[in-house]
Nucleic acid binder design. Structure first.
Lengths: 255, 255
DNA sequence: TCAGATCATATATCGTATAATTTTCTTGAC
DNA sequence: GTCAAGAAAATTATACGATATATGATCTGA
């Protein structure tokens, strides 16, 4: 296994070389950067489940970081179920089934490394399970503030379109508001995860210049149903909305 | 804020006192124990969102552990969204909405600290959203091995009943198999989280001596539908099963 | 051949020193 | 008097070396 690639761009930070410390630390937090680097190597399949990492001292040396930083990075991955370590046996990559796939970070890493067809299918299937039901609940439980926030988000979406960051943020905000209106903490937790995923699939769509279709009519229809408290229609509207998003994402990926 | 309580039972581990090292470290891993201790203090509300922890050196001293251990414990909580730390500003407890509530550990800590009525309501609502749909998918996609495994789990459940650990394990296994049969990785990830929660609610039920009702007929009905590939009936069977579990849990909690 | 003791190794923990960052305070100018 | 730029202080972030502990592997003896 080639670990040199994982160590690429990482240089030793020493007290003696203050000028050298201005290295490309995009994250600012070194252990975060190391964790992401290791995580992407894992989710990409470069380090498959069962793979055993080198001993900490050697591994830290290869990555060009201190052992403390490497250990804190591994704590993060351990907390997300991706690796586990035992004395003498070393640290190894866990089976995929043990990963916390719904963790926003894991989800993001997965998508960054190129989402497979299977993953996108699973993602949209999950959305199709959760969000229509959420729309039903939202129609029954939403309050006035949430309605006005939804209206504002839709207005921003329309003004900026999904080609801009602001427009995409408004899209995410709208979906978050729907899940918030369910008044169910666990559903809201799913919201964070799903939103992460939506963000990147939407980014995929907007990469193709000609926006596939205008999603505003479906969004407005959903909003109307929730505002009117029409649960059954809200469910249908959400299904239509997700169907549209799915179809467009598939088209975008085909190119 | 009283931090002495968090430090309770934690004693300094020194090389000079080998006998002292036999302290109540159930987890074996010190940073795990510290993380759990801090996490339970957080989920119980003792350390509310917005609370700022003492500086690392002082905090580590109060807990009777080294700074590295405390930092690794905080890395775990950070990875689960429960705290965040910035230089100079200190480490603080995040808002509940930022926690990864679906993380199996977070879920377990939450339940250990006494699940509120709202939490149980949310949990059963989530089950009612996810599992009926999962039952539908399972009926369409299950293979022979999963069917035989389900049958075995049911057989074990019947033999041991839910009053025993083995019986409860079989119950969880059955529900896991249903979600596995959906052939959707994200649904399976939900499975782990939900199973954790089910385990403890089932434990609540079995604490009351007289088992409320025999859940076997519903389980067998669900199995039959999945085996026959009858998606619509599988959905209904799962709904009936969760309804039963919910009712029994509520009854058990009333006592 | 197998069981038990021993050994080697890797993780776990500790303590201290230094760097980096950001809040806060101070100082000066307008 | 107010605001902004800069200095200072406090705290997290990183690093490194030493020791403890646990466990897989090996060796030994019955």
């Amino acid at each position: 296994m080639d670990f040199a690639s994982i160590g690429l761009g990482m240089r030793k930070m020493t007290a003696r070389l203050p000028a050298e410390t201005a290295l490309p630390l995009v994250s600012g937090r070194l252990h975060h950067a190391v964790a992401r680097r290791l995580a992407t190597a894992i989710v990409s399949g470069e380090l498959p489940p069962g793979h055993v990492f080198p001993a900490e001292v050697e591994h830290a040396d290869r990555l060009g970081v201190s052992r403390s930083v490497l250990r804190e990075a591994f704590r993060i991955l351990t907390a997300k179920g991706m690796v586990s370590s035992r004395p003498k046996a070393g640290t190894r990559v866990n089976e995929r089934k043990n990963w916390n796939l719904l963790d926003p970070d894991v989800l993001a890493w997965q998508i960054q490394c190129g989402a497979s067809d299977e993953f996108l299918r699973d993602l949209f299937e999950l959305r199709m399970v959760v969000e229509p039901q959420a729309a039903e609940m939202a129609a029954q439980r939403r309050d006035e503030r949430q309605l006005t926030d939804m209206a504002n988000a839709l207005e921003t979406m329309e003004r900026c379109t999904l080609t801009s960051d602001k427009g995409r943020a408004a899209d995410i905000r709208f979906h978050e508001l729907v899940l918030e209106a369910t008044r169910n903490e666990l559903m809201q937790a799913l919201s964070t995860s799903i939103s992460t995923a939506i963000a990147s699939t939407t980014a995929i769509k907007s990469r193709v210049q000609d926006c596939p279709r205008d999603p505003m009519p479906e969004h407005r229809a959903l909003y109307r149903c929730i505002a009117e408290g029409n649960a059954k229609q809200a469910r249908k509207a959400m299904i239509a909305l997700i169907d549209l998003a799915h179809a467009d994402t598939r088209v975008a990926l085909r190119r």
